[in-house]
């Protein structure tokens, strides 16, 4: 947990300035601005429909599958705008990985799931692929459980293992940012605690942005927490402050369960 008395030492990885998001005529996100620091976990909390998942997905431009979507304002990664800075979509998605609510492994072997990304980016050498797969599975705290059955189908794994496999799949292409959209909502408490441990370890080398409905999870894993409501950011601060002394009444009401 970061100490509020000590200034932040990590640089800003993602800077959002005056960002708006429209779906057709409907404005979903309103004038969002925030700094997301490298090697920190930033949680986004808020009631259903507040726009937190939409916001998360903008960081790797998943919205581009729809022609109805329009994004204005700046979304900078290391100072370069991810929408207008000439960043290639495929390259962006390598640098900004994503893990979804429901584990979604490909219906292939464990090995092939993790090797998929590196292959896509041109790695052909078997020994190099083996190393990448092992390294990603180790980072995802899954290696010891699957090292003897790498050829087994990923769909035969438990939900918690499948989710860690999806994390390994994202890690195999060495992303700089990992987006997690309710990564534990389909998991039991033991699997959840493994993922949370993992988040803690991964943020040594990655920028993590996690959307969660589970406020205790936000409190446990994140350094910063932002509270969204109706597409606006009500408050963002150190997680410790948000959960002990939030500035805004609305944040206080939400985290103490007195909202609405």
């Amino acid at each position: 947990m970061l100490n509020p008395q000590i200034p932040e030492t990590k640089p800003v990885k993602l800077a959002v300035r005056g960002m708006n998001f429209w779906y057709g005529e409907k404005k979903i996100l309103h004038d969002l601005s925030m700094d997301i620091h490298a090697e920190r976990a930033t949680a986004i909390i808020g009631p259903s429909g507040c726009g937190k998942s939409t916001f998360l997905k903008c960081f790797n431009r998943i919205h581009e599958v729809s022609s109805q979507v329009r994004v204005t304002g700046d979304m900078l990664m290391d100072g370069v705008d991810i929408n207008r800075g000439g960043i290639d979509q495929v390259d962006l998605r390598r640098r900004v990985g994503m893990v979804f609510q429901k584990p979604n492994p490909f219906p292939r072997s464990i090995y092939e799931n993790v090797a998929f990304g590196p292959r896509l980016f041109g790695v052909r050498d078997r020994a190099t692929l083996d190393d990448l797969v092992e390294d990603a599975l180790r980072k995802a705290a899954l290696w010891d459980e699957v090292k003897d059955r790498l050829k087994d189908s990923a769909t035969g794994m438990s939900g918690g293992q499948q989710q860690r496999l999806c994390i390994a799949r994202a890690l195999a292409v060495h992303p700089e940012v990992l987006l997690m959209d309710e990564p534990c909502s389909a998991l039991d408490p033991i699997a959840t605690s493994k993922i949370e441990e993992l988040i803690f370890e991964l943020k040594d080398s990655l920028t993590i942005v996690i959307v969660t409905h589970n406020m205790q999870q936000a409190a446990r894993v994140s350094d910063y927490t932002a509270f969204f409501w109706l597409g606006k950011m009500v408050e963002m601060d150190l997680t410790e402050r948000i959960f002990t002394t939030p500035r805004e009444r609305m944040t206080e009401d939400y985290i103490t369960g007195r909202f609405g």
Binding site: Q216, A219, T244, T245
Partner: peptide, 9 residues
């Protein structure tokens, strides 16, 4: 109840 904010205080 895992209380937060004013409840926790």
């Amino acid at each position: 109840h895992a209380p937060a904010a004013r409840d926790l205080r």
